[in-house]
Amino acid sequence: MKVQSYLSFEGRCDEAIAFYKKALGAEVVQLMRYSDAPAGGPAGNPDAGCAGGMPGPDKVMHSVVRVGDTELMLSDGSCSGHAEFKGIMLSLTAHSDADARQWFDALADGGQVIQPLMPTFFTSNFGMLSDRFGVGWLMVVAPPAA
């Protein structure tokens, strides 16, 4: 079994992909736009389209980006313009304090720091933030191998 995160950016998916490429070195593995869907909705069924109507053809219907060893799925969703990422955070484990600082600062650009990156009793650096899209992130440095 595999559990993956699927984030709906409600119309800002292209912007999010570009941001994560720059901030984290994310790589686009797959990208499908609504214009790539067959005519008449999924499987040719016009009644099987998106709730509330079909987003613009240039919007992202589905994408997969790889961040390190993890794949995240991203979409424009229904393009409501109001993405909400409540009650969930993505945890990013760095192998060094330098990597943690670089990624933390990059993700915090345009976002909000919840807890500054700092040493704790359980790791050399830990911090929390909400990025410019409202996605919550936990940053932790992996403890040294025993």
Results as ranks from 00 to 15, higher is better:
residue 48 A to N: 08
residue 45 N to T: 02
residue 5 S to A: 09
residue 69 D to Y: 00
residue 44 G to C: 14
residue 96 S to C: 00
residue 137 W to D: 03
residue 50 C to I: 00
residue 17 I to F: 07
residue 143 P to Q: 11
residue 32 M to C: 06
residue 90 L to Y: 06
residue 51 A to Y: 11
residue 118 M to L: 07
residue 80 S to Y: 00
residue 95 H to I: 07
residue 1 M to H: 06
residue 129 L to H: 01
residue 100 A to N: 07
residue 71 E to K: 04
residue 82 H to F: 13
residue 9 F to K: 05
residue 64 V to C: 12
residue 133 F to G: 05
residue 122 F to W: 15
residue 27 E to M: 00
residue 144 P to W: 06
residue 101 R to Y: 11
residue 127 G to K: 06
residue 20 Y to Q: 08
residue 24 L to W: 06
residue 92 L to H: 07
residue 129 L to D: 05
residue 132 R to P: 10
residue 32 M to H: 07
residue 88 I to N: 12
residue 64 V to D: 11
residue 109 D to V: 13
residue 30 Q to C: 12
residue 85 F to L: 05
residue 104 F to T: 01
residue 104 F to L: 09
residue 101 R to N: 11
residue 95 H to C: 11
residue 37 A to E: 12
residue 44 G to N: 12
residue 129 L to P: 00
residue 126 F to K: 05
residue 43 A to P: 03
residue 110 G to H: 10
residue 10 E to H: 04
residue 22 K to W: 04
residue 87 G to M: 03
residue 41 G to P: 04
residue 99 D to H: 02
residue 96 S to E: 05
residue 130 S to L: 03
residue 73 M to E: 02
residue 14 D to R: 11
residue 126 F to P: 08
residue 39 A to F: 12
residue 84 E to V: 13
residue 125 N to C: 10
residue 83 A to R: 01
residue 72 L to T: 04
residue 50 C to Q: 10
residue 45 N to A: 11
residue 108 A to N: 07
residue 107 L to A: 05
residue 108 A to L: 11
residue 85 F to P: 03
residue 49 G to D: 03
residue 54 M to W: 08
residue 55 P to F: 03
residue 18 A to I: 02
residue 119 P to V: 13
residue 12 R to F: 12
